[in-house]
Design a protein around this nucleic acid. Structure first.
Lengths: 114, 114
DNA sequence: CAAACCGGTTTGTATTGCAAACTAGTTTGC
DNA sequence: GCAAACTAGTTTGCAATACAAACCGGTTTG
């Protein structure tokens, strides 16, 4: 087994589960592209129900990857989420692991066993 | 939101959960590099306990992504796993989604909201 | 022949992702 | 002016599942 394959697999095995979950990865990805985003926007952008979005945001907040700001837009409540520095780092780190997997391990079929 | 970002996120949201789990992704990745692998080898290569490896292999088998062959090596039982065509396709597809995410969405910090 | 080892499978548990139900307030229709 | 519908979320309940620990059948070793 090649060294690069070895470390790519180790990377995969150690991914941050908080980031790895597709819904949260989507949220972080969207947030990484903007200064902040409103709840309603995230709902559509990530195709999540309000319930799921709410709970995933709570987990991301608990993990320090995003901040949640609650405010009023006129008379209506409004929630804004933003990625933190720590969140950016976690996302970047996650993406590095994926990149390693993709670039270091060939798609190829044949190879030598063990 | 850019179109490429949109489809990258859709890709992430629709990943095959059977492949997405790190332990199973590791297994499939290892199997994709060889014709087959023995249980004991997978155990080390994927840094999995026997119990976990056993149950993940069962799930992959149930999903048709790998085949399990049981035989005797001398007097001892031995299990071999191999990736199927369907498994190869699922892995390739999964990797395509990742690649799309990484290549289409910039790491960048700033951007315009919504 | 007992103890340790090999090669796994089964079982138990704690986590968690998701949907559905709920809460709290606001606007609209009549 | 008040009931019904809508907005903006949170909480709750449940089914799935990842992992560890216990277990099991057999084999080798001391």
């Amino acid at each position: 087994m090649k060294d690069s394959t070895r470390s790519a697999i180790d990377g995969v095995l150690n991914v941050d589960r908080l980031v790895h979950e597709p819904a949260r990865l989507a949220i972080l990805t969207v947030l990484s592209q903007a200064e902040f985003a409103e709840f309603g926007f995230l709902e559509m952008a990530c195709r999540l129900s309000k319930g799921n979005l709410s709970s995933h945001l709570s987990k991301l907040e608990a993990g320090g990857l995003v901040t949640i700001e609650k405010r009023f837009e006129g008379k209506r409540p409004q929630t804004r989420a933003a990625i933190t520095e720590s969140g950016r780092a976690a996302l970047a780190n996650y993406r590095e692991h994926l990149k390693a997997l993709i670039s270091e391990v060939p798609t190829g079929a044949e190879g030598d066993q063990q």
